[in-house]
Amino acid sequence: MTTPLLELKNVHASVAGTPILKGVNLVVNPGEVHAIMGPNGAGKSTLSKLITGHPDYELTEGQILYKGEDIAEMEPDERARAGIFMSFQYPVEIPGVSTSFFLKAAVNASRRERGEPELDAMDFLKVARTKMKQVGMPGDLLHRAVNEGFSGGEKKKNEIFQMAMLEPTLAVLDETDSGLDVDALRTISEGVNAMRNDERGMVVITHYQRLLDHIVPDFTHILAGGKIVKSGGADLAKQVEASGYEGLA
């Protein structure tokens, strides 16, 4: 049996002393896509921040294992370089730093970690142009400041573009569909689907089922009140759509 990519064991977590997660168990194996659905306030975003090591989110009980190792003490950037990626619900604008500069620095930080040679400016641009096409991101965004003045859709495309560039082992997509129109949703989903393979695991966090029409998960979990209250396959999402969260809790 292979080691799970991600394993949450009885995870309890707090933000500023307020308990949010109250015993979450989850196993994501290589190649699997897990959807986490839930109403507002269920703890969905807490889950993503906890996996990526946001300093404001405290693990109070339980364990988070990545490739079998406890990552609770790892810094956010160590986790990132180890292959954990999060697509942000609200990507941050960083005036004064161009997307290409930032992303080249990020890509090379991970390459160094893996003992691979760094990409020079030419190589980076070549790879970047190809991947930008895949996620439908306009080429000029590379030269603009990170997310500054980007539309909602452009910001989300930029997240998926970064994911394509960083080639993570575990991708957590936090509300990637929020603020997207139908066309952008389809483009982004295609970008995500293109990255599905036997090694990569994904955790897709969403409030709405519509994203899961495009990114069809292997498993669906309903998070409510800080716990996973129900798990199933892709069809569970459709039940939510039909009957709402209240019918399931």
Partner: peptide
């Protein structure tokens, strides 16, 4: 946090 999540120290 955004930059660190992308692997930058």
């Amino acid at each position: 946090f955004y930059l660190r999540q992308r692997g930058l120290s």
